[in-house]
Design a protein around this nucleic acid. Structure first.
Lengths: 200, 200
DNA sequence: CGGGTGGCGTAACTTTGTTATGGCCGTAAC
DNA sequence: GTTACGGCCATAACAAAGTTACGCCACCCG
């Protein structure tokens, strides 16, 4: 009904789907999870609510797309951080991504959308990111097998814990100590050795 | 706007209020955050929806009461764990409480109710629990001041990270390694010394 | 005994997820 | 070239859920 009456012929078949997803991410970023309504997303994408059902099957499917999209970007940020060869830079890449996409991070990890449960397919995307972390920890510390996974889980849980507390605004009781300093302290404790690069 | 969490005059002022809160916790426990509706809570408490508005000012106030109630129970569990004098027991008290009250834990820490933001008063209740953790870490490790808070934050972030990942069902990619074993491994890493009780 | 106040049930309004209906347009079949 | 089909989408309605207006009723005060 608006101006876009022209070119219903889609030279780009994913045009509408991509617009809806972009609109959803925009709503999430600018107005928070509570404003993520099908109507608001559709309005931002220039279509009616039906479009969300055509391309995503409903709000659940839309949230799942947000989840998957988030893990792709998140994983890319992690891999880029790993490439730096510096433990603190890698951990900070994690934190920086989460702080730059806080609501999306909460959708991915915190259950910010009450009814949402990721499908096995979506969880597989998340596992890719964790797999990269395991690989990195294994190479970095010369570990393998169960020990590498244990250690990767420890790194993940610690970094995730700091980030979640910061996003929940629970990192503030420590007056005078900003969250970044807290984070750096905690990450440093993950690798007690001053220079843990002897591996490999 | 009148947002007055009222305490009307009555012979049993907390009767109705307590029933509503108990109903809300029951709904949360048995049906999850997505089923936490004013109507369902009111029905469980044997009153109409208006009761929730009379005693809590709306759903936000009800969630805030859940938040505060949760931190009271959570803090009590922590203090009991600290009293054991064993690091792992203390950490397990944390995890056990969270696993026994998963949805409430997510309301408290994960933003399971989209629009909810705890008031400063509610955050103060949360700070009490963190204060107890700081005291415990300070005494246990012989630390003080900023270092004690840094260390307490590290403990909290690590334990919280493991618990959140387990609640989000993200602790499963490590096939054959159950979440409890992962948790024990991570907590052991918090205290590198075999017996860190020389403090005091 | 009468008036007032406070708690609360009824019912409505509003928002939001979802779906039924129908129309438009491109493609394929003949 | 015409026709049927099917995918995409807007309109509009339905259902669930947060919120509020209204008014009743019980209890207290004078």
């Amino acid at each position: 009904m608006p101006s876009k009456v022209s070119t219903p012929t889609s030279t780009e078949p994913d045009d509408q789907r991509a617009r809806i997803l972009a609109s959803a991410l925009d709503v999430l970023r600018t107005q928070g999870a509570s404003a993520l309504t099908v109507r608001a997303v559709a309005k931002g994408a220039g279509c009616s609510t039906t479009g969300v059902y055509t391309w995503f099957g409903g709000k659940q499917g839309l949230v799942e797309a947000i989840f998957v999209d988030g893990f792709h970007g998140f994983d890319a940020a992690l891999v880029a951080g790993f490439a730096s060869g510096d433990d603190l830079v890698a951990a900070s890449s994690y934190r920086d991504w989460a702080l730059a996409n806080p609501t999306q991070y909460l959708v991915m990890f915190g259950g910010a959308v009450p009814g949402f449960e990721p499908s096995d397919e979506a969880k597989a995307v998340a596992d890719v990111a964790f797999g990269h972390l395991v690989e990195w920890v294994a190479e970095r510390r010369g570990l393998a097998g169960a020990e590498a996974r244990h250690e990767a889980m420890r790194v993940w849980a610690t970094v995730h814990g700091y980030v979640m507390l910061e996003l929940a605004q629970m990192a503030e009781p420590l007056e005078g100590i900003d969250p970044e300093a807290q984070f750096v302290y905690g990450v440093a404790g993950l690798w007690p050795d001053p220079s843990p690069m002897a591996a490999r």
